[in-house]
């Protein structure tokens, strides 16, 4: 068979999962707008932060304390005379990075854990699920707070790692229940009789069949994880002020003076985080519908 023939055949394939997802997004205008907004914000924030110097922005300037928005500072300054706009850009970048990193790290580990547990079943499943139950009952806020004290170099990477260690259980449980179903299906059994190794059956045969579930869950987790970081930072156990994030900016509002008179410090990050989470959620919901043929609009 000639190479051209092969190429033509490949183009004649049925719509792939990705195409269905894109079609669903296109039908759901709100989700489409959300996606475009997300891409723009991400591009803007990551692009602009290359030119901004984090150390310079977080340096205290006593001559420019609590300036309202004006010519020098687009969004004014905070109580340390630091440019709020610069902090907002870098903070959004940090928050997004943490959200994505935590989602990926906890997702990858949780998916592998759930697949292995569900696929093998029996005693393996029992032991792995009891370990998961143990992780679940740990008071993770308390432990994160302890870590904050112990870890000397506290930045986006270490914070993501600590958070991921406590965020993988939900997705692991979900994937495990699906893997339990899939392993009983004939195609998985057939692979066994064909001499395929368990590792290959799990990751090459079973996983592609639950990929839509994985995409949907990870997207919805992303929204939750961005929020969680801000929540922790707001409580004072997230990132330090030297690493601005949306949460640290909002936490300035714990000062009644700031809350009442200096709206420019906390309103923009609060609005931004609200819109970000909503947008991610909209996209996630559209993906969720795309994964289920009965709910599709497209």
């Amino acid at each position: 068979m000639e190479a051209t023939d092969v190429k033509e055949l490949e183009q004649a394939k049925t719509p792939s999962a990705i195409k269905v997802l894109l079609k669903e997004l296109y039908r759901d205008k709100l989700a489409l707008v959300s996606l475009i907004f997300l891409v723009l914000v991400a591009a803007f924030v990551y692009g602009l932060s290359i030119f901004l110097d984090q150390d310079q922005i977080v340096t205290v300037d006593l001559f420019a304390i609590n300036e309202p928005p004006g010519e020098d500072f687009i969004l004014g300054t905070d109580y340390g005379g630091r440019d709020v706009f610069g902090q907002l850009i870098i903070g959004t970048r940090n928050s997004l990075t943490i959200g994505i990193l935590v989602t990926l790290l906890s997702g990858v580990f949780g998916i592998a854990y759930g697949l292995i547990s569900g696929y093998y079943g029996g005693h393996v499943d029992n032991v792995m699920m009891r370990i998961l139950d143990f992780m679940n009952i740990l008071p993770f806020l308390f432990i994160i707070i302890s870590f904050v004290v112990i870890v000397p170099d506290y930045n986006t990477i270490t914070f993501s790692l600590i958070m991921s260690a406590f965020m993988w259980m939900g997705i692991a449980r979900l994937i495990r229940s699906k893997a339990l179903q899939e392993r009983e299906l004939d195609y998985a059994q057939a692979s066994k009789t064909l001499g395929t190794s368990n590792f290959n059956i799990i990751f090459k045969q079973v996983m592609p069949n639950i990929v839509s579930l994985i995409i949907v869950t990870m997207t919805l987790n992303l929204a939750a994880n961005i929020g969680l970081e801000s929540g922790l930072s707001f409580l004072g156990f997230g990132l330090p002020e030297s690493t601005p994030s949306l949460g640290t900016l909002i936490s300035y509002a714990t000062n009644p003076q700031t809350l009442e008179h200096r709206w420019w410090i906390w309103v923009p990050p609060a609005v931004l985080i609200l819109i970000l989470m909503l947008a991610v959620r909209n996209v996630g919901e559209a993906l969720k519908r795309a994964a289920d043929a009965r709910q599709r609009r497209g």
């Binding site: 004939d186 059994q189 009789t193 064909l194 001499g195 592609p208």
Partner: peptide, 29 residues
Amino acid sequence: VQMIFQDPYSSLNPRKRVLDIVAEPLRNF
């Protein structure tokens, strides 16, 4: 020793192309 399954609708992995399905045993051995 190989097996032919009862249900032709579930014994082929829906996410795989025919090439991958038929080549699976070949790739293993």
